[in-house]
Design a protein around this nucleic acid. Structure first.
Lengths: 125, 125
DNA sequence: TGCACGCTTGCACATTCATGCAAGCATTGT
DNA sequence: ACAATGCTTGCATGAATGTGCAAGCGTGCA
């Protein structure tokens, strides 16, 4: 397992030839879905843990679908869950994500400084 | 089109309720494949533009598959291509990517400061 | 003990997507 | 003009994935 499938907490370093930081394919898979993006936005806008039912108001899908998406996000290390009584509370856990995104940005920047300085008009709105 | 499908260069801001920076689903889709991750690593380790045939040595797939992956990466704004004679050279274009990753990291960090400081042991190897 | 509530899981289905092979297109060289 | 090289595109196929419905499981309450 190198680039093929790694997440925030099991991504080995040094297996990629050119990038200091391996590309966390499984993490990006978790982020690469509009429903899950909406769920993350919902959790972010709430600013507090939400029950599954509350998260479900963010998207038109069935609650079972939302539950599955939350499981995927939890396994990717982006949210955490805690059971309280018969409710399950989900909250963002972005510490590892933030660190990883910054490390990856640094890695891309330092691996090809010429390319990133040659053209500077990308990503602008 | 808000969170549903956006890339580095067409991702509107302000449509997400809680995150300053929208989640670029299409960009993450492009990064969420092991073959494309290997291609990016290959380009990064080369430190220079590569022809499609050269990129193809990074992965066992057919060259047509590699060509398609490069197209996806180009449409995601991560690489750029230039035709010279009968060869097509691909090179990393990470300026927008680096900016976006840092903006997203900042957005996640500032949207839920309590969550990201509460637990600090994620993402460590 | 029985019931309601909240969430998860099993199953089926439709769509998306990665892949390989073959054919096509663009360019260069003879 | 013709052939060779380099890359892309059309087509078919198998795998992965998102989704909904129904059933199941855990918990609290009467």
């Amino acid at each position: 397992m190198n680039v093929q499938a790694c997440n925030l907490d099991n991504c080995p370093e040094g297996e990629n030839e050119g990038l200091r930081e391996p590309i966390a394919v499984e993490l990006f898979k978790a982020l690469a879905d509009p429903s899950r993006a909406a769920i993350l936005s919902s959790l972010a806008s709430a600013g507090r843990p939400l029950r599954v039912t509350e998260v479900g108001t963010c998207c038109p899908q069935d609650l079972s679908v939302v539950s599955r998406h939350l499981t995927i996000l939890r396994e990717a290390g982006v949210v955490e869950s805690e059971r309280r009584g018969r409710e399950v509370w989900y909250r963002l856990e972005t510490g590892g994500l933030v660190r990883y995104l910054r490390n990856l940005a640094d890695a891309f920047e330092s691996c090809c400084p010429a390319a990133s300085s040659e053209e500077g008009n990308h990503g602008e709105k």
